[in-house]
Computed example of a mutant assay.
Amino acid sequence: MDKTQPHPLFKLATELGPLLVFFFVNAKFNLFAATGAFMVAIAIALVASYVMTRHIPIMAIVTGVVVLVFGTLTLVLHDETFIKVKPTIIYGLFAAILGGGLLFGRSFIAVMFDQVFNLTPQGWRILTLRWALFFAGMAVLNEIVWRTQTTDFWVNFKVFGVTTVTMIFAIAQLPLTKRYHLEPVSLERSETEAGDVSKG
């Protein structure tokens, strides 16, 4: 099934919307109310994405599942630890997927980010390694923040700090993607070899 390319503003709304809901509900009430609202917002964002594009990015699916599972544990057990450790689990999974893929000569960056890249094998390796290390670092950083800071500080860090750092890191990768950009000989070949880092 062909997927419809979403409008940039729609994509931004589905990605940042749930985080803003989480932030405002926590500020108004508490972390448990924010967790429930976050779960609902994530579910709505996933449904809206599918309705509008007939497609849900892999990253969004993985994030949504982990949010629903750990959010449910947080509410049922009334223990905020679960929602706080959720980002660590997600970042750890992404780092493991990317790092594991490299061990088998594959890059899952294009699949994970739901974007099309045409890079040389060396470009794939470098980009994948950078994102794997970034996610691993974010997992460690989340653990440090939630274990040493207040809940409100952690929420601010999650909503604004992580978003800002991720955007800066992503933008910083643009020179690399341009440097190792490769014009495909054909669309079929490009799709076949996308993410293959075993060559070169």
Rank of each mutant, 00 (worst) to 15 (best):
128 T>C: 02
125 R>T: 11
10 F>E: 11
174 L>C: 04
166 T>M: 14
130 R>W: 03
41 A>Q: 12
93 L>A: 07
69 V>K: 06
138 M>K: 00
119 L>R: 00
19 L>G: 12
89 I>M: 02
191 E>F: 10
22 F>V: 06
8 P>R: 13
118 N>L: 02
139 A>D: 00
100 G>A: 02
192 T>K: 15
145 V>Q: 02
47 V>C: 12
118 N>Q: 09
34 A>E: 08
77 L>R: 15
93 L>C: 10
136 A>H: 03
186 S>E: 04
129 L>W: 06
152 D>A: 14
1 M>L: 09
8 P>G: 12
48 A>H: 10
176 L>N: 03
174 L>P: 04
66 V>A: 09
86 K>Q: 15
177 T>Y: 02
139 A>E: 01
12 L>A: 15
25 V>N: 09
95 A>R: 01
160 F>Y: 14
77 L>A: 14
53 T>Q: 14
135 F>K: 00
116 V>A: 09
140 V>K: 00
38 F>T: 08
124 W>R: 01
45 A>K: 15
18 P>Y: 09
149 Q>I: 02
136 A>M: 05
1 M>G: 14
79 D>F: 07
73 L>A: 10
155 V>K: 06
184 P>E: 02
163 T>R: 11
194 A>L: 10
18 P>Q: 13
93 L>E: 05
139 A>L: 01
119 L>T: 01
175 P>S: 02
57 P>A: 08
164 T>W: 12
110 A>F: 05
166 T>E: 10
146 W>P: 01
87 P>T: 00
6 P>S: 11
6 P>D: 07
133 L>W: 03
1 M>Q: 11
200 G>V: 01
104 F>N: 12
125 R>M: 05
43 A>M: 12
15 E>T: 15
160 F>M: 03
186 S>M: 04
29 F>G: 06
154 W>M: 06
34 A>H: 11
56 I>C: 11
85 V>R: 06
172 A>E: 00
194 A>V: 07
20 L>K: 09
127 L>E: 01
144 I>W: 04
92 G>W: 00
16 L>A: 15
168 I>R: 06
73 L>K: 11
111 V>R: 15
32 F>M: 10
60 A>C: 10
85 V>M: 08
168 I>L: 15
168 I>A: 13
87 P>G: 03
130 R>F: 05
10 F>P: 13
53 T>I: 07
71 G>Y: 06
19 L>T: 10
91 Y>C: 13
125 R>W: 05
9 L>F: 14
116 V>Y: 07
79 D>M: 07
